[in-house]
Design a protein around this nucleic acid. Structure first.
Lengths: 203, 203
DNA sequence: TTGACATGTTATCAGTCGATTACTACTCTC
DNA sequence: GAGAGTAGTAATCGACTGATAACATGTCAA
């Protein structure tokens, strides 16, 4: 070979490698769902060997748990950053922050899919905790009313469904979908392209 | 044994057996999700052998496809039955019809989970078609405005998330969940108990 | 009643995939 | 510079599970 192939991944502090793997795992899990993804795919996406992924996180379920927790933490973080400013624009700023997550590979699909995980003994509690933390934030920290909270969350769940169903692929080509996205996601139009993890995903 | 065990399942027309298996599969898939369920579990729930399930439906994915299609068809059917009557009560009647699906074992979880299936090459198109058919019905046949449609669907997706997350288990015990369910599901309070497929589901 | 088709079973396989084991190599401190 | 801890790999296993093959039994028309 003319290319100087590195046999093993370049050395890295375990904490950094963890974060790198989490980001890769988010993209892959987001694209192919929990069960549809193998630890080997995650490993290859992260540029390390499959056993190393397992050893760093213990089990596949624990890895996914970490992915979910990281995703929800990220949402809360973004929401919190959207709080300061005129109160009447708060809701829109938060919605925009949510829409902006679309650009983070896999982040939104992971969250969207997490709402279907309640039945899993191990992942269920984590998903519930994540959902609950968002609800609490909106209600307590952002100080939405009960009604506003419900509407905000409902709208978010609709976005999740659209993402989970991969309806974004039909944006621009099917009227109903375009209409839907435009009315759900502020400023989605420009972002929506190049949205979900590419490759082996047939629309 | 004192009990007279039947060695093989009693004879039945294949069409009836199909429906029986579909109902059983809905309950099991609804409780444990697509990947979390084995064809053997479905078979045992339906009282037949595992190979027979596979042979009747071809593959596990095709079985699940049939389950999803049956569930969405059922929704549309129930919605359509809720149409006649005073127009101002239409939305509430449809919401009630949706809530009533809670009593059909697995029906709502299956639908809820289907919105996370877009990434699957085989199940994705089916899930999208189901979602789209509901949207179309609400918009065209029930004649909701664009705004009303979005709100109605969003509320439905919130219900789906609550169901998918198995939050109903906390109804009555946690204030946020009780508040949520009561405001999402008309008359949910009385129905909500004995809701999701029992047994091996740890809350 | 017979034979052809439909309904069902038991036994078994083959691929997949998460996990384990045993080993290598880098790096950093003392 | 030695050696101990850390970062990583290759090889392999064992269990699960969807699918297939081969076979058995019931049903019904002519």
């Amino acid at each position: 070979m003319s290319v100087d192939e590195t046999r093993t991944a370049p050395r890295m502090k375990a904490a950094d490698r963890r974060e790198l793997i989490l980001a890769a795992a988010t993209a892959v899990f987001g694209a192919k769902s929990y069960v549809g993804t193998t630890t080997d795919e995650v490993a290859r996406a992260a540029g390390v060997s499959q056993p190393y992924v397992v050893r760093l996180f213990g089990t596949k379920a624990k890895l996914y748990t970490a992915v979910i927790e990281r995703a929800y933490a990220r949402i809360i973080e973004d929401f919190r950053r959207a709080l300061p400013g005129p109160p009447e624009g708060r809701r829109d700023r938060m919605a925009t922050a949510y829409a902006a997550l679309l650009e983070e590979r896999g982040m939104l699909p992971v969250i969207a899919n997490s709402t279907a995980l309640g039945g899993d003994p191990e992942l269920g509690p984590v998903a519930r905790a994540g959902f609950n933390s968002v609800w609490r934030f909106v209600r307590d920290e952002a100080e939405f009313s009960e009604q506003e909270t419900r509407d905000f969350m409902a709208n978010g769940m609709l976005i999740n469904a659209i993402v989970g169903l991969r309806l974004v692929g039909a944006y621009g080509t099917e009227a109903a979908v375009t209409e839907m996205l435009d009315s759900c996601l502020p400023g989605a139009g420009d972002r929506v392209r190049g949205l979900l993890p590419a490759a082996d995903e047939p629309w």
